[in-house]
Amino acid sequence: MELVWRPLTTADIPVVAALYNAAEAVDDTGELLSEEDFAESFGTTDLPGGSLAVLVGGRLAGYGLVALRDNPVGTHRVRLDGMVHPGFRREGIGLRLLPRLMELARGLHSARHPGMPLTVCTMVESRSAGHVALVEKLGFGADRHFYELEVALGESLAQAPVPSGYEIVPFSAARDEEVRLVSNTAFAQHWGSVERSPQEWAASFTTSKRFVPETSFLALSQGAVVGFVLARHYPVVEEMTGVRELWIGDVGTLEEHRGRGVASALLSRTLAQGGEKGYQRAGLSVDTANPTSALGVYERAGFEVARTWTDYGLPVAP
């Protein structure tokens, strides 16, 4: 089977989305993406230097993207995303695609962060046996595990009280920069977290079409932001499953305000508002080794584990 390799272009977005969702129909990872979602990720990727299309007879058999971080500290963890169409699996394409993506990552990393250690990484859903076998065969190791949690939205959810001395208010664009700075501080000690630049923050939340400000809330203490819940909505999930899901993108509280019920109050307000707005389910992802006991907060709010993901990493020499 002759393979043709070339960088992706924005013209490939429809076929990449079609390939991805054909694979999702087989893999059932729960990660559904639309053409619009791929347009966002393509917009933040160096397509000429950090992407690959794998063609067989003119048909897209696989693709890959290299995702850099804006402000890496210590070690630059570069994410490799990609997929092989189910009709072309077990032909060794993945074994050739992933090393090529690693080389692209090495080149981009060396140009932008010379001298900094590089680790390439990729997320794998625990039931994807073929994906697990591929990354382990190439020497990747399981660095971290994440639970994907879900809760049905409805009147049965308990309402957590707002702790004394705090106020829960709707997200305001006027506080956007303040929230970004609080987020960077709140997650500074979290594994794999790096400071989000204004550009990366905007792409993730405030200018993203997926951001839902009306179900996002802030916790104030003496008028200053000390915590937040920021929510997203991916229409493709509803289109393909019939379930309107509210995705909890980030939940954070400054360290000195933890353990007082701030996060629980924020989350409770978001879930209640989500139910009122017609969302049927809420979902989020949490590091199983999160040092802030976040998993307990989510479980008390009614969330249960739906899936487990593993962040596989491989150190790469310059």
Results as ranks from 00 to 15, higher is better:
V4K: 13
P7A: 01
P7Q: 02
A11E: 13
D12L: 05
P14A: 08
A18S: 14
Y20E: 09
A23I: 03
E24Q: 13
E24L: 01
V26R: 04
D27C: 06
D28F: 00
G30C: 04
S41I: 14
S41Q: 10
D46T: 03
G50S: 06
G50F: 11
L52T: 10
G58S: 06
L60G: 03
A61Q: 05
L65P: 10
R69N: 12
R69Y: 05
P72V: 00
L80A: 11
D81H: 08
D81V: 06
P86W: 02
P86Q: 00
G87W: 09
F88R: 05
R89A: 00
G94V: 04
G94D: 00
L98K: 15
P99I: 14
R100H: 04
L101S: 06
M102I: 12
A105D: 03
G107D: 08
G107K: 05
S110H: 11
S110P: 00
A111W: 13
R112T: 02
H113K: 06
T119S: 09
V120F: 09
V124K: 02
E125A: 03
R127Y: 02
A129N: 07
H131G: 04
V132Q: 01
A133I: 07
A133C: 08
L134D: 01
V135R: 13
E136D: 13
L138K: 11
F140W: 13
D143R: 15
V151G: 06
V151A: 08
V151T: 12
V151P: 11
G154P: 11
A158K: 14
Q159P: 15
P161W: 00
V162R: 14
G165P: 05
G165R: 06
Y166S: 01
A174D: 07
A174L: 13
R175I: 01
D176V: 05
D176A: 07
E178C: 01
V182K: 12
N184E: 03
N184M: 04
N184H: 12
T185K: 14
H190C: 05
G192D: 04
G192Y: 07
S193E: 11
S193Q: 14
V194F: 15
E195C: 12
Q199S: 06
Q199W: 12
E200M: 10
E200Q: 10
A202N: 09
K209V: 03
P213I: 02
T215W: 01
T215D: 02
L218H: 09
L220D: 10
G223Y: 00
A224L: 07
V225H: 11
G227D: 10
V229A: 10
A231P: 07
R232A: 12
E238F: 14
E238A: 14
V243E: 11
I248D: 09
I248A: 06
G249C: 10
T253I: 13
H257Y: 15
G259P: 03
R260C: 01
G261N: 09
A263I: 04
A265I: 08
L266R: 01
L267G: 01
R269N: 09
T270P: 11
A272D: 07
A272C: 04
Q273T: 13
G275C: 01
G275E: 02
Q280R: 00
L284K: 04
L284N: 08
L284Q: 07
V286Y: 05
A294C: 14
L295M: 07
V297N: 00
V297I: 12
G302D: 13
V305S: 07
W309T: 04
T310V: 09
D311T: 10
G313F: 06
L314K: 15
L314V: 13
P318W: 15
